[in-house]
Structure formats: structure tokens, C-alpha cells
């Protein structure tokens, strides 16, 4: 169970959110809503353990994630505004490099298969910097697919710049993850239908 316990965060003198609470069980999704600049990304970064809230704690299985440290972070898949891809490397080289550092076993066949599923098989030898924004996003989503065993998915605007068929592919993958008992926390400004109805958290 992932819990947020009376979390308060400020940016400068402005309170982003105060005394925020929620809990998420296995197989549940949470959609974080809010206008631009309301602190959605900040909340997701707190859930990843990158940022520390001014007050309150994030608990995983009834333990503070600060105390869990690496035991928590190796359960998390995070896809933020930056895709962690090196422009000069090809999609395949990028995935090999980042997955090996993440300690996720993957061979070239798995990586090619994941890229093919994202409809990128014709772009295997192209440096990522020459791909479009949507194609880059799909490379990052291929990485997500390979590391899908990690139970907690924290996705910041994952649908941005995807075309219609990729959007459907992603929402199917998210639905599958949740129905397999995974945790999903995401933000989006688009109308996306998941098979599971997400809980909704609105930040003002």
C-alpha cells in the first residue's frame, strides 16, 4: 500500500498543497489533476523520493520511503518531462545503456521486440536526436515496457505528443499493469479512458 500522510509542500512562499492524504492499494490507479503550476510534478517527485516534503511522509507497506531507500526506489518506474535519452545514441543503444545501469536484465532481442511494439523498428539505427517528440516518447515507453515488473509506475504526462494509436497502446499497457495488481499514479490533460476507473486527486 502506498500512502501519502499529511504532506505539505511550499514553493518559495507559496503553499502548493497542505495536509494532503491519500492511499493507494494494489491494482489501483490515481489520476492527479490540477491546473498548470499547481504542483502535480512536485507531488510525483515526492512520491519518487527525489524531493522531500516540508512536512508529512510517504509510506510504502507502512514504512517511510526515506527509511526504505533503495528497497523502495528499485520498485519505481518514473517517466517525467525529460526522457533520459541520449540524443547521439540510437534507441537500442539508449535502452541497453539505461537498463544495464538500472540492473534490469534485458537482451537485444527483448529490446528490439519492445521497440517493434512501439512501431519503431524502422528507426533502429537512427540517433534519437533525429526522432520526433512522439517517437522519442515511444522509445521511453519501450523502456517502461521492459521494466514493467516494477510495481509502482509514476508517469508525468505520459500521453503528451503521442499519436492516436500510440495513445491507445499506452492506455492498454497502463490498464494491464493496474489489473495485474500494479500501482499507477499519473497526470494528464487529455481525456484518456483506462479499463479501470482511477481515483482522482485534485490539487488546487
Amino acid at each position: 500500500m502506498l500512502e501519502l500522510k499529511s504532506v505539505t509542500t511550499t514553493r518559495g512562499y507559496k503553499k502548493l498543497f497542505e495536509d494532503l492524504n491519500f492511499s493507494l492499494e494494489e491494482g489501483e490507479a490515481l489520476l492527479v489533476n490540477g491546473v498548470n503550476g499547481s504542483g502535480k510534478t512536485t507531488l510525483l517527485r515526492i512520491l519518487c523520493g527525489f524531493s522531500r516534503p516540508d512536512a508529512g511522509e510517504v509510506h510504502w507497506a507502512n514504512k517511510d520511503i526515506r527509511a526504505l531507500g533503495h528497497d523502495y526506489s528499485r520498485l519505481v518506474n518514473y517517466l517525467g518531462h525529460f526522457d533520459a535519452l541520449k540524443g547521439n545514441l540510437t534507441a537500442e543503444e539508449n535502452l541497453i545503456a539505461s537498463l544495464s545501469v538500472m540492473g534490469i536484465d534485458s537482451d537485444v532481442a527483448t529490446i528490439r521486440e519492445a521497440l517493434r511494439k512501439q512501431d519503431l523498428h524502422s528507426k533502429l539505427s537512427v540517433p534519437v536526436s533525429r526522432l520526433s517528440a512522439g517517437q522519442r516518447k515511444r522509445v521511453a515507453l519501450a523502456r517502461l515496457r521492459i521494466s514493467r515488473e516494477r510495481p509502482i509506475w509514476i508517469l508525468d504526462e505520459p500521453f503528451v505528443s503521442l499519436d492516436k494509436s500510440s495513445t491507445e497502446l499506452l492506455s492498454a499497457a497502463l490498464s494491464e499493469h493496474v489489473s495485474n495488481g500494479g500501482f499507477l499514479i499519473y497526470t494528464t490533460h487529455q481525456e484518456i479512458g483506462l479499463d479501470v476507473r482511477p481515483k482522482i486527486l485534485t490539487i488546487n
Binding site: 528499485r74 518514473y78 526522457d83 535519452l85 538500472m102
Partner: peptide
């Protein structure tokens, strides 16, 4: 700098490795 700008450092933190 490169890893900071493109988000690779965030992924390092989540690698679960020291």
C-alpha cells in the same frame, strides 16, 4: 550536466543501486 538536463540522473536515483 548532460545527465542532469536529460533526466538520466533521476533514473540513476531510481536504479536501486548506490
Amino acid at each position: 550536466e548532460g545527465d542532469f538536463i536529460d533526466g538520466s540522473l533521476e533514473q540513476f536515483l531510481l536504479s536501486g543501486e548506490p
